[in-house]
Write a protein that binds this DNA or RNA. Structure first.
Length: 417
DNA sequence: TCTGGGGTCCTAGGACCC
DNA sequence: TCTGGGGTCCTAGGACCC
């Protein structure tokens, strides 16, 4: 049976979330900023039309924002995550097989459905909009790469009303379409690969699809070969129906201010480690190794960019804050140097295992004695935190423009007018 | 003044083994 | 003096995704 997939992609997701809770923003250009209010990570169509670029540092577009009445938001992941769950649940009703690909994208399997798929996906699009306020577009094709491409078309050309099936095109029309798609706009072809291909004269999707296999293999390896096969309509990137087990957990942040004391950096990393430990707990995992890193700003003109990191292997999987947090401080002690202003840092937990029997009492930590931990304190929420998590808080991100967490914090519910 | 965070997969090269 | 080759496992780094 020929496979048939749809990719449902939310339009300007973060910006649309802000708008869903503030209808006055209809027609207003919206920009959402990254964690530290650093750069642009989402733009409404109006903001795109004003020339706001993806990834642009906020300070470079502040004047433009002021002059054009652009609404600015700090990112509000609690809100976006919750909205995503609602959207994904609705999409899940349209097929028995769904892959939630990212916070704002989902593939579903439509193989063997003898109905008008464009009409069917039109219904989905309307329902998501009605129930959540989030606009989506749908691309349909035989493979993931083709569905992605179809989705671009659905987004770009108004006449399709947000739903496009690439298989509805005749062969020659399909070729004309592929010819106007830049090779760098194919899913999986990033900036580096794009440059390599263009140097070889492979400029668009049609040329890529028709290129010699050996050329693709030697230029991009097996990854490129797979993309080419998918463009030809042969599915080789399967739907992932269940989330694959995590292989690593990263918790890192740019600090709100450059940090210049061990204690401040230690506070930051201990708090970040706490977040990582919480993620371990959600999936009932332990880790057999950990990496701690700190770095200076790559943009600073006052000091050279440096990046210090240290890894440690554990004899048994660790999963508790009591076991992990002290090790973070000990590793940091080994890499911290007084003369630098640190601007970012984090921890990476790897070699994850399912937790199994708790062995925390007998944990052996590669030559590092586990200290019993300093006195504990209760946080405002009532759970016990370590002394290292208290401090100046200068590491915390700036989030000057965050909208209320309408859906996840009682105190921030939308008022009834 | 001010430049995100969290992931995955692939490959090359080193260490080690027989 | 002559100094293999194939397999596996691990890690670091590159590239990509949203």
């Amino acid at each position: 049976m020929a496979s048939k997939l749809a990719l449902i992609d939310c339009n300007n997701f973060y910006a649309s979330c802000e708008r869903a809770f503030n209808p006055k923003l209809e027609g207003t250009p919206i920009v959402v900023l990254s964690n530290n209010d650093g750069c642009v990570i989402a733009r409404s169509n109006e903001a795109k039309a004003l020339g706001v670029l993806m990834g642009e540092p906020y300070f470079k577009m502040r004047e433009l924002a002021k002059a054009n009445g652009i609404a600015i938001y700090s990112s509000n992941y609690a809100l976006y995550g919750d909205m995503s769950n609602r959207v994904m649940r609705i999409i899940g009703h349209y097929s028995p097989e769904q892959e939630v690909y990212s916070i704002d994208e989902s593939f579903i399997d439509l193989s063997g459905m003898s109905i008008d798929l464009v009409e069917y996906m039109g219904k989905l699009k309307k329902q998501v909009r009605l129930w959540t306020g989030i606009p989506v577009c749908v691309g349909i094709g035989r493979t993931k790469v083709l569905a992605k491409l179809a989705n671009r078309v659905a987004k770009k050309y108004k006449k399709f009303n947000g739903v496009f099936d690439i298989d509805e095109l005749s062969k020659s029309r399909c070729n004309s379409l592929l010819k106007i798609v830049d090779v760098g706009d194919i899913w999986g072809i990033g900036a580096k690969s794009k440059d390599k291909l263009k140097r070889l004269g492979v400029n668009n999707a049609l040329a890529f699809r028709g290129a010699e296999k050996s050329l693709i293999k030697s230029t991009l390896g097996v990854v490129g070969l797979r993309i080419q096969q998918e463009l030809l309509g042969e599915s080789c990137i399967p739907l992932e129906l269940q989330r694959p087990a995590k292989k690593q957990i990263v918790s890192s942040r740019s600090f709100g201010k450059p940090l210049v004391s061990f204690d401040e950096v230690n506070q930051a990393l201990t708090c970040l480690a706490r977040k990582a430990v919480n993620k371990l707990a959600v999936d009932s995992l332990g880790c057999l190794s950990m990496n701690v890193f700190i770095e200076t700003s790559p943009f600073s003109k006052k000091q050279a960019y440096v990046n210090f990191s240290k890894s440690i292997q554990f004899a048994n999987p660790l999963h508790s804050d009591r076991a992990i947090l002290p090790v973070v401080s000990q590793l940091l002690r080994k890499i911290y140097q007084d003369q630098y202003q640190f601007y970012k840092g984090g921890i990476v937990l790897t070699r994850l295992t399912s937790k199994g029997v708790s062995r925390d009492l007998f944990e052996v930590v590669d030559g590092l004695a586990l200290t019993a931990g300093k006195a504990s304190h209760k946080s405002l929420l009532g759970h016990v935190i370590s002394a290292n998590e208290l401090g100046t808080n200068r590491w915390l991100s700036n989030a000057e423009y965050r909208s209320p967490r309408y859906t996840t914090q009682w105190q921030e519910l939308l008022p009834v007018e």
